[in-house]
Amino acid sequence: MIGVYFCFRHDDAPSFFEDPNSQKQVPCPHIHDPAEKYISLVIPAFNEEHRLPGALDETINYLQERAGKDKSFTYEVVIVDDGSDDATKQVAFDFVKKYTVDNVRVILLGRNHGKGEAIRKGMLHSRGELLLMLDADGATEVTDLEKLENQIHAVASKEFRVGESTSSDSSFRISDIPLAAFGSRAHLEEQALATRKWYRNFLMKGFHLVVLLTAGSGIHDTQCGFKMFTRAAARKLFTNIRLKRQV
Rank of each mutant, 00 (worst) to 15 (best):
D85P: 00
D85H: 11
D86G: 03
D86L: 12
A87M: 09
T88S: 12
T88L: 14
K89Y: 10
K89M: 14
Q90T: 08
V91S: 07
V91H: 05
A92W: 04
F93R: 10
F95Q: 03
V96R: 07
V96Y: 01
K97Y: 02
K97M: 13
K98Q: 12
K98T: 03
K98G: 01
Y99M: 14
T100P: 00
V101G: 11
V101H: 06
V101N: 07
V101E: 07
V101R: 09
D102G: 04
D102L: 15
D102V: 07
V104Y: 03
R105V: 15
R105F: 06
V106Q: 07
V106S: 08
I107P: 00
I107E: 01
L108D: 06
L108W: 05
L108T: 07
L108R: 12
L109S: 10
L109D: 02
G110T: 06
G110R: 13
G110E: 09
G110P: 02
H113V: 06
G114L: 15
G114P: 06
K115W: 02
K115Y: 04
G116V: 09
G116N: 15
E117T: 02
E117P: 00
A118Y: 03
A118F: 04
I119E: 05
R120N: 11
R120V: 08
R120K: 14
K121E: 08
K121P: 00
G122S: 07
G122C: 09
G122V: 11
M123T: 05
M123Y: 02
L124P: 00
H125P: 01
S126Y: 05
S126T: 11
S126E: 03
R127G: 05
G128Q: 13
G128I: 15
G128W: 10
